[in-house]
Design a protein around this nucleic acid. Structure first.
Length: 416
RNA sequence: GUGGGUAUAGUUCAGUUGGCUAGAAUGCCAGAUUGUGGCUCUGGAGGUCGUGGGUUCAAGUCCCACUACUCACCCCA
């Protein structure tokens, strides 16, 4: 027995309707915001993620599915959705079209991690990407897409956390201040944070170690070191959110693990699905396009974990769509009627009605049990009498009521 | 990568201080009812008790290792 790879999940036939439901609401929501779908490859040159996501991140350092192809090139299964979109924006000359470019994607992403509740090695993300605008309205637009989607799905419990981590200039200033503050306590920090101190001190704020949390509790905050431009941007976003009536919390500890973020970062967090509560995370990444080889292009967006979103819906007993139920099952009484039943069924299918018949040469009783279990809306027994008279009893399975109909009028009967 | 928990039928689980041929429920297939599903009754199929060692007269049960699953750390969606 060869089993499923660790950290992956099958979506079995009985559950796929939930995915259809979520995807349908996602696409409908994206459309009302004027977002167009973009599809990029499942794998890219490793270099793209190394430069885009950042060499110091855990994602690039230890979580990527990297392999060498037969031509000796280093390839990586996408660990997130944004880097590929940035590459496509450049390569597809999207900067030459009307700006801003508003896109969304639905994609699997791959990270080599230890699975746990709400965390997989392959999961699926809905993402929004808005390129070309540096306005706080674009930040608000991204947040609003997520918020609107949650509302449509009935999710009201998610808390929106926002923060600003500034731009390259204020970050340098801030890092200096943070290092200065931490210098005295460096020996009390965990080994990982001691390394972060050198490479990327900002990440220390994200540390969950008790000792480090105590130390960082009084640490300088990025939002206190913003340059005038970044501070104004942050204030503008807060103003827009407030005017829209969107509740948010400024959380100075939101730092995020991807290096491409500048200015705005945000997360929608759930408390009902276990330790991995971030359902949606994103922010602004003004330097990403330049980083992967294009000209400077401000951009903002987010990624949303669809498995986590589904966990939220189910944990709150919210609707997750309805199973797709076929309409009619025609049961041939004996093998003599099988061919006629098959012909009837296919005529109905051709007119767009979902219909089935026996594929196992089973008894009438067995066929009725099958039809009952699968949930067909109607059944019809086809015997010699029915074929001779051209009429048969159409049974409605929910209440057992029957109605005699002409076989060649089945189509009209079922459409109504 | 680190730590905790778990592993018996397709599924959910019983299985006593180690002691007859390993059980139930549910699901699946069939019959009761030779032209009609759900309810009821009856029968059938389905298990190398996660894998490999060890202790013992005797191991599903005790010990060790490994593997898988799971939760948490870490990280993130």
């Amino acid at each position: 027995m060869i089993n499923i790879p660790k950290g992956t999940k099958d979506v079995l036939p009985a559950e796929s309707y939930k995915w259809h439901y979520i995807e349908k609401v996602v696409r409908a929501t994206a459309e009302t915001f004027g977002l167009n779908e973009i599809r990029t490859p499942t794998f890219e040159h490793t270099e793209l993620f190394a430069r885009g996501v950042g060499e110091t991140t855990d994602i690039v350092n230890k979580e990527m599915y990297t392999f060498e192809d037969k031509g000796g090139r280093s390839m990586t299964l996408k660990p997130e959705g944004t880097a590929g979109v940035a590459r496509a924006y450049i390569e597809g000359n999207l900067a030459d079209g009307a700006q801003p470019v508003k896109m969304y994607y639905l994609t699997p992403v791959f990270r080599y991690e230890r699975p746990q509740a709400g965390r997989l090695r392959e999961h699926h993300q809905f993402g929004v990407e808005i390129y070309g605008s540096d306005s706080a309205y674009a930040d608000a637009e991204a947040i609003l897409v997520a918020k609107t989607l949650f509302t449509k799905l009935g999710v009201t419990e998610l808390e929106l956390n926002i923060n600003s981590i500034g731009c390259a200039e204020c970050r340098a200033e801030y890092n200096r201040a943070l290092r200065e503050y931490l210098a005295a306590n460096i020996d009390d920090m965990c080994p990982v944070c001691r390394e972060r101190y050198v490479k990327n001190p900002l990440r220390i704020l994200d540390c969950k170690e008790e000792g480090c949390k105590r130390i960082t509790a009084g640490a300088p905050k990025t939002i206190d070191y913003l340059c005038n431009g970044c501070a104004a941007h942050h204030e503008a976003l807060k103003g827009i959110l407030t005017s829209l009536g969107i509740a948010y919390k400024v959380n100075p500890m939101i730092v995020r693990g991807l290096d491409y973020y500048t200015r705005t970062v945000f997360e929608f967090i759930s408390t009902s699905i276990g330790a991995q509560g971030t359902v949606c995370g994103g922010g602004r990444y003004n330097n990403l396009v330049e980083e992967v080889g294009g000209k400077h292009t401000p951009a903002v967006g987010f990624g949303m974990g669809l498995e986590r979103l589904l966990l939220v819906l189910e944990s709150l007993n919210l609707p997750v769509g309805e199973p797709e139920i076929p309409k009619l099952y025609i049961a041939p009484l004996t093998s003599a009627e099988a061919a006629e039943a098959y012909k009837l069924v296919n005529a109905l299918r051709a007119s767009g009605i979902s219909a089935d018949t026996d594929l196992m040469s089973r008894s009438l009783k067995a066929q009725m049990k099958y039809a009952g279990k699968r949930g067909y809306e109607y059944t019809l027994v086809l015997g010699g009498d029915e074929i001779a008279s051209g009429k048969a009893a159409l049974r409605k399975m929910s209440d057992g009521s029957e109605k005699v109909v002409e076989l060649d009028k089945l189509q009209e009967e079922l459409k109504g």
